[in-house]
């Protein structure tokens, strides 16, 4: 395979990956770019493009891989998507497709407009657009936090 792959990608566990592919496309605008199916017709592996990022939509293929739907909605990892498009329009589309919103679109102190939504199986997603690039000093002052560039 000669996919140009980003250096970091995400694998996401779903009970029903086929339903997830369709839902993520309709709600969030992701694009299916690879589907690998077993002899039984089940999805062995699939991938979607998210801008210049790549997600692997997988299933609960061993005891360590679980959908939030199997864990009472708990997430061990979530995904943040940085968009260069109208965040409010993206939000409206996601909500219309059935996304459960946990944060309405709002400007953040760190210079982004952001909303948050759960997908069909309870994975947590945040979508934002950069409004104003801030230095760490400006961010600290605006948010009442300590921002620095090292541990």
């Amino acid at each position: 395979m000669e996919h140009l792959r980003p250096s970091v990608m995400v694998g996401i566990c779903y009970r029903d990956p086929r339903a997830a592919l369709a839902w993520l496309e309709a709600a969030f605008g992701f694009e299916t770019c690879l589907v690998i199916e077993g002899p039984d017709g089940g999805i062995a592996h699939s991938e979607m493009k998210v801008g210049d990022g790549l997600i692997m939509v997988g299933h609960e293929w061993d005891e360590h891989h679980r959908s939030p739907a199997a864990l009472g909605g708990v997430n061990t990892q979530s995904a943040h998507v940085n968009l260069d498009e109208d965040i409010d329009a993206h939000f409206a589309r996601a909500r219309a497709a059935g996304a459960k919103i946990f944060r309405e679109p709002e400007d953040q102190f760190y210079g982004e407009r952001l909303y948050g939504a759960y997908d069909l199986e309870g994975h947590q997603w945040t979508f934002s657009r950069l409004i104003k690039a801030l230095s760490l000093e400006e961010m600290s002052a605006a948010g009442g936090v300590l921002a620095r560039d090292h541990l």
């Binding site: 792959r5 980003p6 250096s7 970091v8 990608m9 995400v10 694998g11 996401i12 566990c13 692997m56 005891e63 360590h64 891989h65 679980r66 959908s67 939030p68 864990l71 909605g73 708990v74 997430n75 061990t76 990892q77 979530s78 995904a79 994975h123 947590q124």
Partner: peptide
């Protein structure tokens, strides 16, 4: 929050995983 847990708190379960391409 109650909705955010380390795999350490879930007997090693992961809802998402990481892939690195080198």
């Amino acid at each position: 929050s109650a909705g955010h847990a380390s795999p350490l708190s879930l007997n090693g379960k992961n809802t998402q995983t990481l892939a690195i391409q080198v």
